[in-house]
Design a protein around this nucleic acid. Structure first.
Lengths: 170, 170
DNA sequence: CCCAGATCGTAAGTATACTGTCAAATTAGA
DNA sequence: TCTAATTTGACAGTATACTTACGATCTGGG
């Protein structure tokens, strides 16, 4: 039995692969975020969690994970760290002993207010190398792709549904 | 002193932020990769490392990290796992006792050959929801952005330089 | 009312990612 | 040549990400 022919494998093929580019871009984005927000000692994930808790006070951890498309298990430790920094507090829900409701503390609201300019600088820096028209084009395509691929991820985003159980509307 | 006015913070602003979209897309990309390659028990990172070692036999860990833009500390454990699976082997360099040279084993070369179709299916699926013209546009913009932001990341890609010390040319 | 199934939080185990530090080895400079 | 700076690989520590599992709790069907 003859051995199979060698494959034309090149690094250039890797460098042009969508998966590689997404990983690399994520790496760069986190790096820029951490640089701009160094003095606040908040990670991108912790920042997103704070925003969501600010927007939905009294949300529980499971619904929070759906609102920011986080893995539920990971979120546990993120919440612990935010609580250790005194940025959020957890209160038991009176009608369900399993659930702990999440609220921003005063320091949490304060750091959120203070960090916003740094976050916006970071977001701007990520796209800075592109021409303005290209930035818009890229964001437009990414919004589409992320939305259309939502179900493909382990933790689909459930922005609206997640809140329907909180007594906000129906 | 009056208290500062509340900020108009919304989740929609988060959903449209570049950093959020990059994180989300990376999440989705890994998920699709793992799904297509489930039977091979290889992560995207391990796959990229195998490709690079195949392309540059005898590379050392430090240069490998530059070639695939990985953190060097992380790469240590990646190499350990690949070695444990018998996909690569490490040989001490005769002229430098610090260095261990990396080579693919026969099983390593075999799995690389066999996994390629699954990887290509995964890469295609990531972009599938977009129209073909949009796929090209997105990839073009991303290649640009990643390249122009290369130095902004903690582990800049050094595709060429990294090989100049391997005796390939000069 | 009672049990089956679902849900919530938590934890253990694996893998990536980055920060530091450290010792051994190599190289460069005085 | 002897030493200072650098390089390499290893390790410890933190944080994200996902899987599976488990106990506590709630809910619904009978």
């Amino acid at each position: 039995m003859p051995s199979k022919p060698p494959l034309p494998i090149t690094m250039d093929a890797v460098y042009a692969a969508p998966g590689y580019l997404f990983r690399r871009m994520q790496q760069i984005a986190v790096s820029i975020f951490m640089e701009e927000c160094r003095s606040f000692d908040l990670t991108p994930v912790q920042y997103a969690a704070l925003i969501a808790i600010h927007t939905h006070p009294g949300i529980d951890a499971t619904r929070l994970s759906a609102v920011i498309a986080f893995d539920r298990s990971t979120l546990g430790s993120v919440i612990e760290r935010l609580q250790a920094k005194d940025y959020i507090e957890r209160k038991p829900a009176p009608e369900d002993k399993r659930i702990k409701l999440l609220y921003l503390t005063k320091p949490g609201a304060a750091i959120l207010r203070d960090i916003i300019p740094a976050v916006e600088r970071a977001q701007a820096r990520m796209l800075e190398p592109l021409k303005p028209a290209d930035r818009k084009a890229l964001m437009g395509l990414l919004v589409q792709l992320v939305d259309l691929n939502n179900e493909a991820s382990r933790v689909p985003l459930r922005a609206e549904d997640a809140l329907e159980h909180l007594g906000k509307s129906g």
